[in-house]
């Protein structure tokens, strides 16, 4: 599905990624772990074309590195940013409508699907996105990207700032989305969640991937956890 090889990224003159290599398979949930500032968010922004990058990004057997973000999105890559970027003045319904890329070719997910998964969004359908709670905004932004019918979703810190009950709800949602054949790449801070739902994990340090394996591999690798994850 997605194969990233030797990806380098730059913010102005500073070199953030030093050759990241990773892959995501069909229907897989993969987590990108690591401390703050090691380049996890930059990695998915670089894949999305939002950050100047060099290297190779192959998505569904096509090289996409260097393409503008809207072209990459149309190829079936969905992105949910860390700050959520709800359109605050538009209603929940309008936010969801903007997730649809092509109104003539409906995707697998309809607005009713979204409302069934999150009845709270149905109740808020005609309220401006800006007045939703943090949890509702997180649901909305994931649903908005789903409306674009992506093959792969990249989600930056989906559970950040959410109450424990909502964290479980978001985790359940991700598992359900993956069950319908959508691959997911998440950047996650909460180790337990990431290990519970992922099939594979990558740990990043200093702009590189320093560990790759299954959640069980990581549970057994005390050294990796101590050096690259625990604070």
């Amino acid at each position: 599905m997605l194969a990233v090889a030797d990806l380098h990224a730059f913010y102005g003159k500073s070199h953030i990624l030093h050759g990241v290599t990773l892959m995501v398979g069909e229907g897989e949930i993969v987590s990108l772990l690591g401390r703050n500032g090691v380049g996890r968010s930059t990695t998915i922004k670089a894949i999305m074309g939002d950050v100047h990058a060099a290297g190779s990004v192959r998505f569904r057997d096509e090289e996409i590195c260097g393409l503008p973000p809207y072209v990459i999105a149309r190829k079936g890559l969905g992105y949910v940013p860390e700050n959520r970027d709800i359109f605050p003045t538009l209603t929940v319904r309008q936010n969801l409508l903007l997730g649809v890329k092509n109104t003539r070719r409906p995707g697998r997910w309809t607005m009713d699907d979204m409302f069934e998964m999150f009845p709270a969004l149905r109740q808020r359908a005609d309220n401006p996105g800006g007045v939703l709670s943090g949890g509702e905004q997180q649901m909305l932004t994931i649903c908005r990207t789903l409306m674009g019918d992506p093959h792969l979703m990249m989600i930056d810190e989906p559970t950040e700032g959410l109450a424990p009950m909502l964290v479980t709800q978001v985790a359940d949602l991700l598992v359900r989305i993956a069950a319908r054949g959508v691959s997911i790449l998440i950047v996650e801070q909460k180790l337990t969640i990431a290990l519970n739902i992922s099939r594979r994990v990558y740990v990043m340090g200093h702009g590189r991937v320093v560990f790759e394996g299954t959640p069980d591999d990581l549970r057994r690798s005390d050294g990796v956890r101590k050096e690259w994850l625990e604070v």
């Binding site: 939002d50 809207y70 359109f87 903007l98 674009g148």
Partner: peptide
């Protein structure tokens, strides 16, 4: 709607697959 959303978040609108340029 696309224009309104682009007023505040042009980057996000592009990443939803709209040709913002």
């Amino acid at each position: 709607l696309i224009i309104q959303a682009s007023l505040t978040h042009p980057g996000m609108v592009a990443m939803l697959g709209h040709n913002v340029p």
